[in-house]
Design a protein around this nucleic acid. Structure first.
Length: 439
RNA sequence: GCCCCGAUAGUAUAGUCCGGUCUAGAAUACUGGCCUGUCGAGUCAGUGACCCGGGUUCAAAUCCCGGUCGGGGCGCCA
């Protein structure tokens, strides 16, 4: 039987005299001599346990004297409403069980007021996670993903699982992690992209994949991880890339709405407010983008991809003009994109390739894929790729591939931007960066 | 991959520019006292640190070189 009868948050001043058992960590000890307070913390909050000499049994007071912060205890007792206790209630204990004693004092403070550096906190992530403001971020992230899934399920999307191990480094130019796979060379995927396409061609039609991707780029930035998770969506029988962006913006809306509706307390803990974005999201496109950038004194040669400064300029431009933190960038130069994207037939320089930008940071990329076998083969050739190594992917296009498209939206990045967090490692439970592989 | 900055007790910092006054300071945590309404409790006492290697110098936390790790910018991207 589960030890606790109540989470701390479930106990209110209306529970007078009710007998409860709470269980959790010793958050704070305040010893006033003949009066002692134990602040017990669990996932949902905190409650004060009060011991008075002459009122509380002597052996309980003796036991309380041995407690240290972060010991794990269960406390049975009566709820006592009182104005002088936090949230107007406290527990008068009749029994205290020590479930686990700390072996040594904690290296980073859980209850204290000294904020450790992120790197130190990540070394002791387990302790860090016990801080309510850190826990809140992950509760919000969970709801964000839940909101996405609810939207997708309503929209008839099926969840699928795609492989993380790849027999060939394909896709774009980013670096992949090699893996020892018996006597073959294998790689960790950069994106579940190609298998999603195959699933749609296989007739699954509307699917999504929630899972990790890896990039072997030694990026030292507050927005990159070597391992990140994405919500990757793919759908068939689209008319053009706008059928994809309409899904994406609703998915984002759904996820943010879920957070707004169900994470009021967590948002308060971290001192943030969220706003459900209005759809449709504004769009800027190539080649018009060159003109917009020029107005802001930024020159990008016609036909070239933009850089991060441009992204910031466009974000500012859209924010002023459309009052939106979100916008799509469409029709990227084909030369900057992978072989599988669909070009605009009449203007083959540009691709039906779409990024979603949120508060100036790229959240996703996607768009319409090329589904015509001949075109795909042309593009494989144009990108200088080997027909043989791509055959596993291109063959199925011979046997009836519907027009399709999709996107992969970064979960850590979306959480980060939504909550105005400065570093993506804050929104990753156990982040993997070039130097950090533990814990 | 390129560029800039940093590393002092468990944690977070002062000191570094202008080498000696640093047997390295205040905080918090920790250890031991006192205290019957605390809630960043208060109060008294105590333990505890200059990233590693090399160099310059009478003398290095402080200056120089290399390494490792960390923060950030660009590139790449989610």
């Amino acid at each position: 039987m589960i030890i606790r009868t109540h989470y701390t948050s479930q106990i209110t001043k209306d529970d007078a005299e009710k007998e409860v058992t709470v269980a959790g960590w010793v958050h704070k000890l305040r010893d006033l001599g003949n009066l002692k307070f134990i602040v017990l913390r669990d996932r949902e909050g905190q409650i004060q346990v009060t011991l008075k000499k002459g009122v509380t049994a002597a052996e309980l007071i003796e036991l309380a004297n041995t407690l240290r912060e972060e010991d794990v205890i269960a406390v049975k007792g009566a709820v006592k409403p009182t104005k002088i206790a936090p949230k107007g209630r406290e527990i008068v204990p009749t029994k205290i069980d020590i479930l686990s004693k700390i072996v040594s004092s904690v290296p980073v403070s859980v209850s204290g007021n000294i904020e450790s550096n992120l790197d130190t906190r990540l070394d002791f992530r387990v302790l860090d996670l016990r801080r309510p403001e850190v826990l809140a971020v992950f509760k919000i992230q969970s709801k964000l993903v839940e909101g996405m899934q609810e939207y997708l399920k309503r929209g008839g999307f099926q969840q699928i699982f795609t492989p993380c191990l790849m027999g060939a480094a394909s896709e774009s130019g980013s670096e992949v992690f090699p893996v020892v796979y018996f006597n073959k060379s294998a790689f960790l995927r950069q994106d579940p992209q190609l298998h999603r396409q195959l699933a749609v061609i296989g007739g699954m039609d509307r699917i999504y994949d929630l899972g990790p991707s890896w990039r072997a780029e030694p990026s030292h930035t507050p927005r990159h991880l070597c391992e990140h998770r994405g919500c990757a969506v793919e759908l068939g029988f689209i008319t053009d890339e706008y059928d994809v962006t309409r899904v994406e913006e609703k998915l984002v809306q759904g996820s943010v709405r879920k957070v707004k509706e169900e994470c009021g307390e967590e948002l308060e803990i971290i001192g943030r407010e969220v706003e459900v974005p209005k759809a449709p999201f504004p769009e800027v496109r190539f080649p018009e983008i060159y003109g917009i950038l020029k107005e802001f004194g930024k020159k990008i040669p016609f036909g070239e991809d933009y850089d991060r400064e441009s992204e910031a300029i466009l974000a500012k431009y859209v924010k002023e003009r459309h009052k939106s933190d979100f916008f799509f960038v469409n029709r990227f130069p084909f030369k900057a994109k992978p072989f599988y994207v669909m070009r605009v037939d009449e203007e083959p320089q540009w691709a039906r390739s779409v990024d979603l930008v949120y508060k100036g940071l790229e959240m996703s990329s996607g768009g319409q894929r090329e589904h015509r076998y001949e075109k795909i083969m042309e593009q494989v050739k144009e990108k200088g790729m080997s027909f043989v190594s791509m055959q596993w992917f291109t063959e199925p296009f011979k046997y009836g591939a519907p027009p399709h498209g999709g996107f992969n939206i970064g979960i850590e990045r979306l959480t980060m931007q939504l909550l105005d967090v400065e570093n993506i490692r804050e929104t990753t439970l156990f982040p993997r960066t070039p130097e950090r592989l533990l814990p």
